[in-house]
Simulated assay, not measured.
Amino acid sequence: MATHLLTGAGSGIGAAVARRLHERGDDLILFARDAGRAKEFARAFPGARTLVGDLATPDRLSWALGQQHLPDRLDSLLHIAGVVELGEVGELTPKTWHNQLAVNLISPAELTRLLLPQLRVSHGQIVFVNSGAGLRAHARWSAYAASKHGLKALADAVRDEERPNGVRVTSVYPGRTASPMQAKVHQQEGKEYDASRWIDPESVATTVVAALDLPRDAQIDDVTVRPGR
C-alpha cells in the first residue's frame, strides 16, 4: 500500500486526487490548515490521517510538523493547494504578493525540504500541480503567474538534485479547471462562470495518478492538460 501526502484535498483537483487514491485503498495523509479542516477530512476520507499547518505561514511549518507524527516513509508528496488574486501590477499590494508566493511557492519548497528524507527512503515521487500560468503570464495574472513560474523552477531544480536519490519529480500544468478557485477567478474577471466549459478536476486527477503509477523505468517530467472544448 502506497502512502501519499496531499495538500489541497478540500476541493477541486486536490479532492479528486484524494478520492481516487482513497478509493483504491492507498494510505492518505491530508494536509489541513487548521483542526476544523482536519476533522472535515477525517469524515470525508475514513482512515486517512491528517497533518495541520498553515501554508500561508511557511516560516511556521517546521515547528508545526515538529509537533506531529510524521511517517517514516512517503511514496509521494502532492502539492495541489493554491490561491489566486488577480490585479494589475500597478494595483497589487505587497500583502497580495506575499500571500500568493507563500502558499503557491514557499510552502511547497518548505514541505519538500522537510519531507525529502521520507521520500528518499521509498524512492518516491513529488508532484507539483502547477498551472498554465506557470508557463505564460497574462495581464492581471502577474503575482499568481510569478508564484507558478517559481514553482516550475523549484520542480526543475529538485528533479536534478534528487535524481541520484531515486526521487521522481513531475510538474502538471492544467488549463482552466472547473473548481471553486475558477469560480473565484471568473468573479474577479467580471465574467459569467460556466463549469461545463472547463476541464473536469477528475481529468487532471487521472493525469496525476497516471504519473504516480508509471513504472519505475520511466518518469513524466512535465505534462500540460488543456480544455478539450
Rank of each mutant, 00 (worst) to 15 (best):
T3M: 11
H4K: 07
H4I: 05
L5A: 12
T7F: 02
G8D: 09
G10A: 14
G12V: 02
G14C: 10
V17A: 03
L21I: 13
E23F: 01
R24G: 00
D27F: 02
I29N: 04
L30Y: 06
F31E: 08
A32P: 02
A32N: 06
R33A: 05
G36W: 12
R37M: 14
A38I: 04
A42F: 07
A44I: 01
P46T: 13
G47W: 09
A48K: 04
R49K: 15
T50G: 14
A56F: 11
A56G: 15
A56I: 08
P58L: 13
R60N: 12
S62E: 15
W63Q: 15
W63C: 12
Q68H: 05
L70E: 04
P71R: 05
P71T: 01
D72E: 15
D75W: 05
L78M: 03
I80N: 00
A81W: 04
G82E: 03
G82H: 05
V83L: 08
G87L: 08
G87K: 04
E88I: 11
E88L: 14
E88R: 13
E88M: 13
E88Q: 08
L92K: 05
P94S: 11
W97L: 10
W97Q: 08
H98E: 15
H98T: 14
N99M: 14
N99G: 04
Q100M: 13
L101T: 05
L101S: 02
L101R: 02
A102V: 00
V103D: 03
L105Q: 09
L105G: 00
S107M: 10
A109N: 10
L111S: 07
T112I: 06
R113I: 12
R113M: 06
Q118N: 06
R120E: 11
R120C: 12
R120P: 02
H123C: 06
G124Y: 04
G124D: 01
I126V: 14
V129F: 02
S131I: 10
S131T: 12
A133G: 09
G134S: 06
L135S: 07
L135P: 00
R136N: 12
H138Q: 10
W141M: 10
S142H: 11
S147V: 08
G150C: 09
L151P: 05
L151A: 12
K152R: 15
A153E: 03
A153G: 14
E162Q: 15
P164N: 08
N165W: 02
V167E: 03
R168C: 05
R176L: 13
R176M: 11
T177E: 07
A178V: 08
S179W: 08
P180N: 03
A183Y: 11
A183M: 11
Q188V: 07
E189A: 14
E189F: 12
G190P: 05
G190V: 11
K191S: 09
K191G: 01
K191L: 13
E192V: 15
Y193A: 03
R197Q: 13
W198I: 01
W198P: 00
W198R: 00
I199N: 00
P201D: 12
V204Y: 03
V204I: 14
V204H: 02
A205T: 08
V208N: 00
D213S: 08
D213Q: 07
Q219M: 09
I220Q: 09
V223L: 10
R226L: 14
P227D: 11
G228V: 13
R229E: 06
R229Q: 12
